[in-house]
Design a protein around this nucleic acid. Structure first.
Lengths: 201, 201
DNA sequence: CTAAGTAGTGACAGTCGCTGACGATACGCT
DNA sequence: AGCGTATCGTCAGCGACTGTCACTACTTAG
């Protein structure tokens, strides 16, 4: 025996649709009331599902804000694989980053809202750092596969991602110059700053 | 009316002592059963206090593993302030890192155990990334105070900390070469990799 | 078109991280 | 000895997250 409200008939039982509804609901509530003041139950309610379903679609409360990362990850690996093999690691990464600029710029409207929530929530900043770190691990493997020494690959992936992260941050604060220009600027700054290391103490 | 066990008489009511006992208890239990399988209540019990006291001393369950960071932070800012003002940002950071090497090497016995737990726990890795990020913010301010352009300061602090982190990671895996050598090696690799950026696009 | 398999969901109970409030105890100072 | 402050125990409670089971919708084979 079940209630009439137990199993709604008008909510399409489709995983992807529910995920998108949850993402939308979470973003709205986070912007409206803040991350900490928003319970998972409320998000689920706005999306028309129960809290239990929320945690079936997202590993935890934070994960709902990091959906675009997967797409960018795939695109970036593809772009790096397409880069001419003779390029050095850092130039190769620079080229790969430039390849995914359109994707990032296209997602800006959504990303911008999420970035605002993240900037106001330490717990979410931690998760974002973890996402960047995962990207570093991925690019480290990709560079190693290109024949780069394992040690250099890790360092270049780390530094490259950080340069990219800084470029994106600047572009988020002021998009007028464009992400391509911010990337070039950041890589150029890296080069300039590194030349000062020439004379080894 | 209270139990005889309510307020123990043999446990000294001293903040610092209790903190150290909690740190020790947590480290032991984390190594023995893993982070996720260890409740805050069990840690507190082993330290002879209640769960509530645990959260009075540490903001959350993870924080108990990151006690040495504060000391390193202070030492590092002091070291950077002592670096000759004419040095470029990256060389200045390199010099400052070398200054705190003894402190890091001295803490290795404790750090090593903690690192093993962190390496096995994603949630703790996130926190560690946050600690590094906090260090980046600190060094960014310090570099800015030295007269470095705000944009370059952020990039150099970010890159410098990452180079340092990689050096420490390598030194953790194999301490035979020494942390000083690993630092030199990492900075040299950064220089080498960055020279490939010379010809822009 | 029925039957079986699969994916998605609701409901319920429970653990654990974490917090607020209040009273009780130990410690340092006078 | 008396007093103020720091620290602790106890209790109640919220919210994140999980395991389990029953139920429903969609798909595929026969």
């Amino acid at each position: 025996m079940t209630d009439a409200t137990c199993y709604a008939v008008d909510v399409p039982r489709n995983g992807k649709v529910v995920r998108d509804r949850l993402r939308q609901a979470a973003l709205e509530l986070f912007i409206e009331h803040g991350f900490d003041q928003t319970t998972a139950e409320r998000i689920a309610a706005r999306a028309g599902v129960t809290e239990r379903t929320y945690f079936r679609h997202f590993a935890d409360k934070r994960e709902v804000l990091f959906g675009a990362e997967a797409e960018l990850r795939d695109e970036l690996t593809r772009a790096l694989a397409a880069v001419p093999a003779h390029l050095e690691p850092l130039p190769a990464l620079r080229a790969a980053f430039h390849e995914v600029v359109p994707l990032v710029e296209r997602n800006r409207p959504v990303t911008e809202l999420g970035a605002r929530v993240i900037a106001a929530t330490p717990a979410l900043q931690e998760r974002q750092l973890a996402k960047w770190a995962a990207l570093v691990a991925l690019l480290t493997d990709a560079l190693t596969a290109r024949g780069v020494d394992a040690y250099a690959a890790q360092l270049c992936a780390q530094v490259g991602v950080n340069v990219c992260a800084i470029a994106i941050k600047r572009w988020m604060d002021d998009p007028s110059a464009g992400l391509d220009a911010e990337l070039e600027r950041a890589f150029h700054e890296l080069y300039e700053a590194s030349t000062a290391l020439k004379v080894p103490g």
